[in-house]
Amino acid sequence: MTTIRAKKAFPWHIVFFLGPGLLIYLTVSVYPLLDTLRLSLYNEEMNGDLTFTGLSNFSKLLFDVVWSDPFWNATWNNLKFFVVHMLVQNPIGLLLAVLLSSPKLRMRNSYRTLIFLPTMLSVVIVGFVWQLLLSPLWGITENLMWDIGLGNYFDAWLGKESSALFTLSLISVWQFVGLPMMLIYAALLGIPDELIDASVVDGSSAWQTFYHIKLPLIMPTIGMVSILTFVANFNAFELIYTVKGALAGPNFATDIMGTLFYRTFFGFQLQQGSLTMGAAVATLMFLVILVGVALYLFLFQRRVQRFAL
């Protein structure tokens, strides 16, 4: 068969649809990211010229005490920040979601809407609000604690090296607990009623139904919530900056990757900002996030299959 095939017209419409959005995405998101990775391999001279120095920025960050102490400190703090979210925020979110999904619950929508409210607020606002509430000057929290007999335990938590990071983590948990709650709640709603009925007929108690049926079925969502938490935590900045400033005091006790990145890039007070060292920090953050996402995709998502419900 030798029919003459009409040459297909060039698909201009595809260009039309993809063009503008992709142009912005590529120039403002993809290119800067790749360029940041590139810049991390250079060194900025006094006169502003860039010279290629290979991995020396990274070796400084990881091994040169001047750089590596703050870097490891921030990484370690960031990890603690994340662990608090995983151990406090997500379990509370799960608990609230389970309670919200109990059948015939009254005022379900009000609870849901109100508990989610802090998530909507700006981190900056939340930071200031809690700074005020925890301030020994104002004394709201202190008085409340005296009222319930725990007054002796009150302290200026945000100001102490030992407790500042933990307190900030809890503030962040307070703000964002609505997200895991909402996502897990949606997943719980997606479990067909008949499945729950079946397990009740099979003799499960409420707890057994939760543990053997619901929990495995919402595992994919819990996994997703975890990875979202991870990315958000290793990208956090605003809360620390608002409450403790760029120096993430006291004595860098609350310094995390985001604040370290900011200081390294822009400089702060005595520290000189550096384009290329900033790029190197960003690159390491990128790698951390990449490793986290990859671990999630390959270890977690592969094992926990999505079940066609």
């Binding site: 067909p192 499945l195 397990s199 007929v201 053997h212 419900l309």
Partner: peptide
């Protein structure tokens, strides 16, 4: 014991 319309087999 009950057999449901959608079978309600535990998918996992």
């Amino acid at each position: 014991a009950m057999v449901f319309q959608s079978y309600a087999l535990y998918p996992h």
